[in-house]
Write a protein that binds this DNA or RNA. Structure first.
Lengths: 345, 345
DNA sequence: ATGAAAGCGCTAACAG
DNA sequence: CTGTTAGCGCTTTCAT
């Protein structure tokens, strides 16, 4: 058995209170006794039990985070940024990946509550009836939360302005002369990127061909893109460009296109979203929309820390903050650019 | 404040012991009282505090996992597989990403000990003096551990047979007629893949040109590959093929090669390692060595559960198990194949 | 079948 | 400065 504070006290010939004191060095302790205690701690290889501590402090120094898919580089990187931030404040970040299954989200939140996490970060945002109760649970337990989705039920949120990002992306394609632009979406509902897609059409007085929109609650983004574009081709639809929900889907789309003898960007222009590492390396290099992950992570952490410092009353009374970040269109080969992203109608 | 068992007991008009009983439905409780308690629980939205429970049960239902880099798809996928397995057994998996910094490994292990995790999974395996103490700490505290590195200090381990995998990969290149094969390694020391590389040379009576080996403790695999191959070119070295530690590096290498006007596989043949999703989509499609992630994850989980069920004495007395998995060479375009992987000298 | 009471390992008053 | 004591929220004997 691991040694407890009692054993250490015995070894050092002091009371457990004194041991506790040198451990937390709050109260004054005579330096000679302090030394004795420290030696005992060292000798017995003692590590205080964080859980026992937390029970008293009414906090767990733990943050729970839910993401839709950790294999997605965007989420992996965001996690990295956040883990770093929280670690510096002695918090442990627990991630749970839902693999786009909404029932899991609820289960994860329940487990977070059982574990008494100090805060929650919601990265996924699936639709469905389950979720209402999920958010209610969080509200009921008054747990500081930041969502990565816009204005979700009065929660704090940090979001990319995907309406702007998607609009820019599709505008770029329109400016290149494309009229029949397909959209291969993600599992999000509602999807701001789709809105941006429609917005770009509206701005140009164009009409969206609904048949050119594919949505899906997929498991593997890459495969989904591959499959969706294959359907588009097999349905004999006329399109000269595809805007994709994210880069992984875009890669799948490109692969699918090539498999069907189409070349990118000569036959079909492609724009992705996220600007993951591989985007610039891919052949053709991917035109995409870059998310400022670091900034998003920093803002998120800051917002959560703010809430963490409040008592329940203040927390409940404070209106949620919604922070938004601009997205940047990166033009590369896959869209048949280069064209300046600012070159609007 | 969240309701405690006391409040529930009051509400239901029973003692806390009874509430505890229906919560764990161990002892017999009259069905009428059980109902009353259940209603109270429901009404007050009560969730028992897992930490308080764990304090008594001497377990935390938590497993700590350390990986070198979560943005690496291999680790992300392995985490996914493991999270699923452990979740089914009511365990929470905490991942920590070291970003290849060995000091972090020690820090994470210490935090795991403080949190009294029930088990540890070590995915990274960095060299350096720090690590000795890290492993000693785990040993001292008698925490069930499975390493993803071979035979590390008498620990359980589940590993891919990278000696075999790398040997096959390089043999493939040799069979294709290459003699000057560079190796761009990873942060691991010792590195079995490098050994496989050397082994393939030995098997063919060839001599390794040490100048063609690049190693590095990098942050971003892709960039490292890019940079390493650029150095190779700038140093004016003669090589016609590159074997890479992983696929992300391979992509960087290909990018770097193209940037210097070399074409893959016509000028230079490339073989990667891992077979991540993108490998088949990349242009040229990447010849690589596939790791059986699912199998590795399953074996790992099983091994850890086995240890979890032992008392300290048995645990310490049980000799470590070392499970190894075969790797599979997947021949695609980047090596200038196709050649059957079994076609040896 | 149920309640009272003794802790789990630790911190935080409260006395000396 | 340091020891004693009362809990944190829960499980688990031991009685009843």
């Amino acid at each position: 058995m691991k040694p407890t504070i009692k054993e250490v006290a015995l070894e050092a010939g002091v009371s457990i209170a004194t041991v506790s004191r040198v451990l937390n060095d709050k109260d004054k302790v005579k330096s000679s006794t302090r030394e004795r205690v420290k030696n005992a701690v060292q000798k017995m290889n003692f590590q205080p039990d964080l859980n026992a501590r937390n029970m008293i402090n009414k906090e767990t120094k733990t943050i729970g985070m839910i993401v839709p898919d950790l294999s997605n580089e965007y989420w992996a990187q965001l996690f990295d940024v956040l883990q770093e931030r929280f670690w510096n404040h002695k918090y442990t970040l627990i991630v749970c990946s839902t693999s786009h299954k909404s029932e899991k989200e609820t289960a994860f939140v329940m487990s977070f509550i059982e574990r008494r996490v100090d805060g929650i970060i919601i990265g996924s945002s699936l639709a469905g009836p389950d979720n209402e109760s999920t958010y209610d649970m969080i509200k009921n337990h008054a747990i500081p939360t930041v969502s990565l989705d816009p204005k979700k039920r009065g929660m704090n949120s940090v979001v990319g302005d995907h309406l702007q990002g998607a609009t820019d992306a599709v505008l770029h394609l329109v400016n290149l002369g494309h009229q029949n632009i397909a959209y291969i979406g993600g599992p999000l509902i509602p999807d701001t990127r789709e809105l941006g897609y429609r917005n770009a059409f509206m701005l140009n007085g164009l009409v969206v061909n609904e048949a050119l929109i594919k949505r899906g609650n997929y498991m593997y983004a890459f495969q989904f893109g591959y499959q969706a574009v294959s359907e588009l081709i097999e349905e004999n639809l006329d399109f000269s460009a595809v805007f994709c929900f994210n880069d992984a889907i875009a890669f799948g789309v490109i692969k699918g296109l090539e498999q069907h003898g189409k070349s990118v960007p000569d036959d079909i222009a492609i724009v992705g979203y996220d600007d993951i590492q591989m985007a610039s390396a891919f052949k053709p290099a991917l035109t995409t929309v870059r998310q400022p992950i670091r900034d998003i992570g920093d803002a998120l952490a800051e917002l959560l820390f703010e809430s963490l410092g409040m008592d329940t009353e203040t927390l409940l009374a404070t209106p949620p903050k919604n922070i938004s970040f601009n997205m940047e269109l990166i033009v590369r080969e896959s869209s048949g650019g280069p064209v300046s992203p600012s070159k609007k109608t």
